[in-house]
Design a protein around this nucleic acid. Structure first.
Length: 723
DNA sequence: CAGTGAGCGAGCTTCCGCTTGACTT
C-alpha cells in the first residue's frame, strides 16, 4: 500500500503535520520556493508576453530530487503549502519542476496547524488555482523588471554596485524625506508653568498643577518667551487658588492584540533592544523547538512569519482556562478575537503565540538561552494578556482658578491623576510606550479635592517656569521603519528584516544612535529615482500593485495585460534616464576633518572601486589623495604606536570592511579587525577590543568586562521609543 | 593593507519573497 505524499514548506511544519496525519502519510518540506528566475540575467522575455525562464533554486536541487523520488512511489500527492499567493505558486512550481502533472494531485490549505484544521482541509481538497499562481508570477516578474532594469541605470549614472527595487527604494525614500523634514524644522520656544499646591488644611498633601489657559486668550495656551513666563510666575505667586471643577471618568484600556511579525519585531526592539534580524533568528529557534527534558523537540511558538492576528479556537480555550485558574474568574469574561489591520494581509498563518500557555516562561527557562527566554517571555505574556479583561482606572481632571495677581488676569491650572481600580491584563503585560511616559502623571494618584475648595501654594516660590522647545520628528528606528512600511503594505513578514539590511549594505543609510540617517549616496540615489521614476518611488505604488494582483487572483484581470499596463510608462522612464546625464561623483563626497597637505583645502571622503579613501576637495586641480585612516586613540599592544581605522579591501563577494592597523607600519605589522577601546586592559595594560554593545575583551590576557565600567562613562542610553 | 577618482571600456554589480542547513574558518 503506497503512502500518500504531503508537501509543506517548512520542515518543522512537516514534523507537526506528520504527527497529526499518522503513518499512512509521508510529509516532506519544500523549504520555500524550489524554482525562480535566474540570478544572472533578467529571465523575462520583454518582447514575448513577459515569458519567464525559471531555474531550480541553486543549492536547493536536492529538495526537488527528493520530492520527485518520493512522488514516484506515492499514492495521492497533497500540496499543503501556505494558503496564499506564494504558497500556491510554490505548489505549482513543484508540480512543473518535478513533472507531476499526471499524478493524483490534491491541493489543501489550512490557516492553523491544529488537528481539526488539518483534518478539515484534507476532507476538502481542490485543484491548484492558476489565477493565484498568475498573480504571483505577475508580482515576481514586476519586481524583477523593476530591480534588474533600474539597478543598472544606477550603476551607469551614479555608482557601480547600487540597487533599486519596489520595496527598498521606498524604504530609502521614507528615511530621506524624514531627514528633510528634520532639516527644515525650526524649533519653537515655549514655557511650561507648574505650580506646586496643597490643601489649605493639610500642608503636607501637595500636588502639581500645570497652567492650562489664560483669561482673555482664547484657544490654545501659548507662552512663547521668558518675559511672558516671568509675568505669569509673578501673578501666580501672588494668586488665590480655588478648585473650579473635579471631573472623574472611568477609563477602560484594552490589551494589545497578539503578535504578528511586524509587532513582534517592534516590541522586541523597544523592550529588549533586539534588532529585527536577531528577533527573527530567536523566534525561528523557538519555532523549531527545543528538547524539553529529553524526547522529541517541541515547537514552543507558532510560525513567526505571519500577518494575521487569528488565534486557533483550541488556543483560545486553553487561554481561558489558564487565566481563570491562575488569576481568577474576574480576569476573564469571554474569548477575544482580533481583526487583522492590514488590508494586504494574506492570513496564511496564525498570530505568533506559545503553542501551549501551560509552558510558562519559568517552566521552559532551563532549556532556553537567555535571549530565547526573553523573547519567549514576551510572546507568552502578550498572548495571555490579549485574552484577559480590560483594565479599569478612574482618571480625574481637576481645574483650578488662580486670580488676584499683580496683572489681575485670571488663570486656569490643571492637575490630573489616575487610580487603577482593576488591573485586568496589566497584571501580565503592558505594551511599551514612549520612553519615560509610563509612570507619569497618568498613573499617579491625586490628592482628594472637591469643587469650590480653596488651595494654596505649597511654598512661597512654589511656581516654576521651564523653558522648552518643540521637537523635530524623530529619525526612523528599525522598528518605526518596519511599522511604517507595513502600514503602507510594503514588504512582507519574511522580508522586513532584510529590507533594513539591504539599504544599510548599499551604504544608503547609516545608524546614528540606533536611528537611520541617509548618507550622501542615499540622498543622491533617492533624488535621482524620485526625479525619473516617480511611480516607483510613490508609497502608494505597492498598494496599487496589490489591487491589480487581487484582480488577477479573482479572475477579473489578465496578468500579461496587467504587466503591460505597468511596463509601458516604466519603459519610457527608463529610456529617458538612460539617455540622461550622470550624477557628478562630487555629489557623493562625504566631508572629513582632514586638510590637504599640498593645497590646504579640506579633504573629502570618496568611494572608489576598492572602498573609501581621502581625496582633496580641489580635484582635479589638486590630485592629492590618501588612504582613509581614522585615529582611535588606542595604543598598539606591540609597539605602543597608535591604532587607526583603515579601509579594508573588498574580497570576492564580501564588501570592504574596516580594520585597525598600527601607525608604525611597516615597522610594526599589528592589525586587528575588532574595534579597539582607548582604555588599556586593567589586568595587563594591553589592548582591549569591543565585544558586543557594552562588553570588552582583552586580546592579550583572559580579561573581559563592561565598557561602561572601564571608561567610567554610562552605557549608551537606550534609544527613545516612539509609538 | 598600496592606491584607488574621469576616460579607453574588460568584466562585474542587481530585485522580492518563500525557506533552512551545508559550506569551512
Amino acid at each position: 500500500m503506497p503512502k500518500d505524499l504531503v508537501i509543506v514548506e517548512s520542515p518543522a511544519k512537516a514534523r507537526t503535520v506528520g504527527r497529526f496525519l499518522g503513518d499512512q502519510y509521508q510529509v516532506k518540506a519544500s523549504m520555500g520556493h524550489v524554482r525562480d528566475l535566474p540570478e544572472r540575467d533578467l529571465g523575462v522575455d520583454l518582447g514575448d508576453k513577459f515569458k519567464p525562464t525559471y531555474v531550480e533554486v541553486p543549492g536547493r536541487e536536492h529538495v526537488l530530487r527528493e520530492l520527485r523520488r518520493a512522488a514516484k512511489w506515492a499514492g495521492s500527492i497533497w500540496l499543503a503549502t501556505d494558503p496564499d499567493r506564494e504558497g500556491e505558486a510554490i505548489s505549482w512550481h513543484i508540480v512543473q519542476a518535478a513533472g507531476l502533472q499526471n499524478a493524483a494531485l490534491k491541493r489543501v490549505v489550512f490557516h492553523e496547524i491544529t488537528e481539526n484544521a488539518i483534518r478539515h482541509a484534507f476532507r476538502h481538497p481542490r485543484q491548484i488555482d492558476l489565477r493565484l499562481v498568475n498573480a504571483q508570477q505577475a508580482r515576481r516578474i514586476l519586481d524583477r523588471i523593476v530591480g534588474y532594469e533600474l539597478s543598472p541605470v544606477l550603476w551607469k549614472k551614479v555608482r557601480r554596485g547600487l540597487s533599486a527595487g519596489r520595496v527598498q527604494s521606498v524604504a530609502l525614500r521614507l528615511i530621506v524625506d524624514r531627514e528633510r523634514e528634520i532639516e527644515a524644522f525650526r524649533p519653537e520656544e515655549y514655557w511650561v508653568i507648574t505650580a506646586t499646591l496643597s490643601k489649605e488644611a493639610a500642608a503636607d498633601k501637595t500636588f502639581k498643577a500645570t497652567l492650562a489657559s489664560i483669561q482673555g486668550q482664547g484657544g490654545r495656551l501659548r507662552v512663547g518667551d521668558r518675559t511672558q513666563a516671568d509675568g505669569i510666575v509673578q501673578d501666580l505667586r501672588a494668586s488665590q487658588y480655588r478648585v473650579a471643577s473635579v471631573v472623574t471618568k472611568e477609563v477602560r484600556t484594552r490589551p494589545a492584540p497578539p503578535f504578528i511579525t511586524s509587532t513582534l519585531q517592534q516590541e522586541a526592539a523597544r523592550r529588549l533592544r533586539f534588532g529585527a534580524q536577531r528577533t527573527m533568528r530567536l523566534a525561528q529557534e523557538l519555532y523549531e523547538g527545543v528538547q524539553l527534558g529529553g524526547g522529541d523537540a517541541i515547537g514552543l511558538i507558532t510560525y513567526m512569519r505571519t500577518d494575521s492576528t487569528h488565534i486557533a479556537p483550541q488556543a483560545l480555550r486553553e487561554a481561558a482556562d489558564f487565566i481563570k485558574q491562575k488569576f481568577g474568574p474576574e480576569y476573564f469574561d469571554r474569548p477575544r478575537t482580533y481583526r487583522t489591520k492590514s488590508k494586504v494581509a494574506q492570513e496564511a498563518h496564525e498570530a505568533i503565540r506559545p503553542t501551549s500557555m501551560l509552558r510558562t516562561p519559568e517552566g521552559v527557562a532551563p532549556y532556553l538561552s537567555s535571549d530565547q527566554q526573553r523573547l519567549y517571555d514576551l510572546v507568552w505574556k502578550r498572548m495571555v494578556a490579549c485574552q484577559m479583561n480590560d483594565s479599569l482606572a478612574d482618571s480625574t481632571t481637576v481645574e483650578i482658578d488662580a486670580r488676584g495677581g499683580p496683572s489681575s488676569r485670571a488663570y486656569v491650572l490643571r492637575a490630573t491623576g489616575s487610580l487603577l481600580k482593576f488591573p485586568g491584563f496589566r497584571m501580565v503585560y503592558l505594551e511599551a510606550r514612549e520612553e519615560g511616559e509610563e509612570q507619569d502623571e497618568e498613573s499617579r494618584e491625586l490628592v482628594p479635592l472637591s469643587e469650590g475648595e480653596r488651595v494654596r501654594l505649597a511654598a512661597a516660590d512654589g511656581v516654576a517656569a521651564e523653558q522648552k522647545f518643540t521637537q523635530p520628528p524623530p529619525r526612523y528606528s528599525e522598528a518605526m521603519l518596519i511599522r511604517t512600511l507595513e502600514e503602507n503594505g510594503i514588504g512582507r513578514p519574511s522580508t522586513f528584516a532584510s529590507i533594513v539590511q539591504t539599504i544599510e549594505q548599499r551604504d544608503y543609510v547609516s545608524r546614528v544612535g540606533g536611528r537611520f540617517k541617509p548618507t550622501k549616496l542615499g540622498v543622491v540615489v533617492c533624488d535621482y529615482l524620485k526625479d525619473g521614476f516617480q511611480e516607483i518611488m510613490d508609497t502608494g505604488f505597492t498598494s496599487n500593485m496589490e489591487e491589480s494582483l487581487d484582480s488577477i487572483a479573482r479572475g477579473d484581470a489578465e496578468w500579461v495585460a496587467t504587466l503591460d499596463k505597468f511596463y509601458g510608462p516604466f519603459k519610457a522612464d527608463l529610456e529617458k534616464a538612460r539617455g540622461g546625464p550622470r550624477v557628478p561623483t562630487s555629489q557623493l563626497d562625504e566631508p572629513s576633518e582632514e586638510i590637504c597637505e599640498k593645497c590646504e583645502r579640506p579633504m573629502v571622503i570618496k568611494t572608489g572601486r576598492f572602498g573609501k579613501f581621502l581625496s582633496c576637495s580641489g580635484f582635479p586641480t589638486c590630485r592629492n589623495s590618501r588612504p582613509l585612516r581614522i585615529s582611535t586613540g588606542a595604543k598598539c599592544p606591540e609597539c605602543g604606536g597608535e591604532l587607526r581605522q583603515q579601509q579594508g579591501r573588498a574580497s570576492q563577494g564580501r564588501p570592504a570592511r574596516p580594520f585597525y592597523g598600527c601607525s608604525n607600519y611597516p615597522t610594526c605589522k599589528f592589525t586587528t579587525n575588532r574595534k579597539p577601546v582607548k582604555e588599556p586592559c586593567p589586568s595587563c595594560g594591553k589592548l582591549l577590543v569591543e565585544r558586543g554593545r557594552d562588553s570588552v575583551q582583552c586580546l592579550s590576557c583572559e580579561f573581559t568586562g563592561k565598557l561602561s565600567e572601564i571608561s567610567g562613562k554610562p552605557a549608551e542610553q537606550p534609544e527613545p521609543v516612539e509609538a
